[in-house]
């Protein structure tokens, strides 16, 4: 694995136990984490969670990625999980308040790059909370809705959809690419 990656003016690296405080600050931010499952405000628990995750990372079952700016200040995280021979899921996407408005877009672009071009993973599945309206609108531009229940809308994205999305996002951040 070639971590860290330097793309779109950001550095992407795997999460370590020492990132527990930063992740906890994101996951316990009521505004930022309102569309994710609840997390206890407990640093020890978060550290233990990351320790257990590192085992799954070693087995190539999961990748928890942190992205940071030029000054090595952490900006956000995302996770690839439920990785099988045929498919994977992305989620746990959180960004620190006050970031440049295109950090989110760049990190989402990197999710696709990592999953499809580096790890060569299969079909992409993910879910979005029904009340997360903007993110729903965004994903409906590219991904196919395959199911929904009271809480979530479930999406799938094949290779063609991924390429369309990458092309769209890249055209937006083109001046920032280096």
């Amino acid at each position: 694995m070639q971590f860290p990656f330097h793309k779109y003016g950001l550095t992407f690296r795997l999460v370590e136990e020492s990132d527990a405080q930063f992740i906890l600050s994101l996951r316990t931010n009521k505004e930022r984490a309102r569309y994710l499952s609840a997390t206890d405000d407990d640093l020890q628990k978060q550290t233990e969670w990351i320790k257990a995750y590192k085992q799954r990372e070693n087995e190539r079952k999961e990748y928890y990625v942190l992205f940071e700016d030029d000054n090595q200040q952490p900006l956000g995280v995302f996770r690839l999980y439920d990785i099988t021979a045929e498919s994977f899921t992305s989620g746990s996407w959180l960004i620190k308040p006050g970031c440049d408005e295109f950090v989110g877009l760049k990190s989402d672009l990197f999710v696709g790059f990592l999953a499809k071009e580096v790890l060569k993973l299969g079909d992409w599945f993910f879910d979005v909370r029904k009340n997360n309206k903007k993110v729903l609108r965004y994903h409906k531009m590219f991904a196919k809705v395959i199911n929904e229940d009271e809480l979530n809308v479930y999406f799938a994205m094949d290779r063609a959809a991924y390429e369309k999305k990458s092309s769209f996002l890249t055209s937006i951040i083109q001046p920032d690419i280096y």
Binding site: C99, E101, G104
Partner: peptide, 14 residues
């Protein structure tokens, strides 16, 4: 205002 609002605006214009 956030990255998602920015993307929504860009998508609307597109």
């Amino acid at each position: 205002w956030s990255s998602m609002t920015a993307l929504s605006v860009i998508a609307m214009v597109d």
